[in-house]
Nucleic acid binder design. Structure first.
Lengths: 112, 112
DNA sequence: GAAATAGTTAACCAAATGGTTATAGGAAAG
DNA sequence: CTTTCCTATAACCATTTGGTTAACTATTTC
């Protein structure tokens, strides 16, 4: 039994590619046709098609067919999970990181 | 010329694996030996070693050798970039998403 | 110093990823 | 109806990823 990727896996995975992040950035200006999304990039059209599928599987975009055009819009909801994962741990990490820092500074002082 | 991955690429890439996220979660409790990090997972120890290298390349962990033990601590700084990328766009996305929602609700009303 | 311990590195493998070209499907325009 | 346009799918390829086992390095312990 091959167990599927978690939501976090696919969301972070989708965000790890610069073209896909670029597409999402572009989408913050609003719903956009696939052609317009592809235009800035120096890769073939099928390559963009694949990136869109990755974003779609991660739930980050939604597609509406209007005639022969596909209109893409962002769905920010799955990213909230990612955001909150980071937020939860950043607090602990930062605290822990500073704690070590303080410890090291104490050491310095003591050794004068 | 093979151009390297951006910081965001490798940070998001590192976060896209459940074992690596698990390791980071564990590290929020403080500096930890490699063995302890590996213990919960049902993969070989070299597999963990590789995951640590991925996290290290992304700048997310720091390693200190104390005798034969490697002590790992989290470095939360590179994640700030990721966090801020998300934060920047989530605002636009959310706004855009709600705008469409409002638009659709207006349509519904109008068509009654 | 020999044995055990903590961890990495090397060599290998299968599957996933990101790209390509060629082909196909369906809507719009001529 | 034929052509053009917009996009997806198929088939293929090279590279990367995530895992394995085996061997190695360095430190501690007996």
């Amino acid at each position: 039994m091959v167990i599927g990727k978690s939501q976090l896996d696919s969301v972070f995975g989708a965000l790890s590619d610069p073209i896909r992040r670029g597409i999402l950035e572009r989408l913050s200006a609003g719903e956009t046709k696939v052609g317009a999304l592809a235009a800035p990039y120096d890769v073939s059209q099928p390559a963009i098609s694949k990136h869109l599928r990755v974003l779609e599987k991660a739930g980050l975009i939604q597609r509406t067919r209007r005639g022969r055009e596909h209109h893409i819009k962002v769905d920010p909801r799955p990213i909230e999970e990612a955001r909150s994962w980071i937020a939860t741990y950043v607090r602990f990490w930062h605290h822990q990181f500073e704690a070590v820092d303080i410890y090291l500074k104490e050491q310095e002082k003591t050794q004068k």
